[in-house]
Design a binder for these strands. Structure first.
Lengths: 143, 143
DNA sequence: GCGATTTGATTGACGCGTCAAGCATTGACC
DNA sequence: GGTCAATGCTTGACGCGTCAATCAAATCGC
């Protein structure tokens, strides 16, 4: 491994560990949703009917199905989401974003955005943004 | 947030979640050290005397001190590291890489390298490597 | 020197996400 | 149409890393 590659991997590792913690911390300080829950609600808010199958939600969130079960459990307990049996398939469940869930999302996103901007986007200028996006997408797709 | 920024953040999030799991998985399949333990041994192997204070090891690994205590506990149980009281400060402990630990590291690194190369480095070509490294270092430093 | 504070590290309790096992429901096949 | 594998999701058990509390050694103030 070349010195440049080594430096890259070390920097990536640090970001991998430290950056999500920093954002998570900002969210917690604001009394807001943890990142995993925020992300789930965000995905729900972006689809027609604010409804997604558990498996689909897990997959777009890059989480195991059982992990998503736990998250929706927590969200449902706080009435931010409700579970509705799936019409076409009696085994399936839909997670549906409630109005309260949408409100929580609305409350959370400015802080989330500010945190992400401060910790990440502020450090990526101009042309780098699109180049890096391409690289990251390739890495993400492969995995 | 612009569409480009949004794409960047989403791609970064996916990499953050998926990539370490992929590498971890490769290590586990080879019956090798988990990433956290691998990293600790690696840091130890790189310093004079293969010795580091717990706090220093935690800090270079971007982990809490108590987290590092657990990791060194596991490593010590398998005799890959030993704890030695610190001379200059009776409260402190040094983690010292043992020969067995060094051997485990030697055994692990080819698979670790191959995994990192396959999942990450193969997707970063030419000039992107240094540009991306700079950005990641800025992000890591800030946090 | 002797209490009071600070510092280095460990421990207890906890939350999170994973895997493997379990439970329904569905769909295929005879 | 009844059995049997496959599918969608949940549950149990577990490992990991965090925070808050704790303990011991060191340092400061007097």
């Amino acid at each position: 491994m070349s010195a440049a590659e080594d430096a890259f991997i070390r920097a990536l590792s640090r970001v991998l560990l430290a950056m999500p913690r920093a954002v998570e911390h900002d969210m917690a300080r604001g009394g807001l949703l943890p990142l995993s829950e925020y992300t789930a609600l965000m995905h729900l808010s972006e689809v027609q009917g604010r409804t997604m199958r558990m498996s689909e939600l897990a997959s777009v969130s890059n989480l195991s199905l059982s992990g998503m079960t736990r998250i929706v459990d927590r969200l449902e307990r706080r009435s931010l989401v409700k579970r509705v049996r799936c019409d076409e398939d009696g085994r399936g469940w839909n997670a549906v974003l409630t109005d309260a869930g949408f409100a929580a999302l609305t409350e959370s996103w400015p802080i989330h955005l500010a945190s992400v901007r401060r910790h990440v986007l502020d450090h990526v200028q101009g042309e780098d943004l699109s180049r890096l996006t391409t690289v990251l997408q390739r890495i993400a797709t492969d995995t």
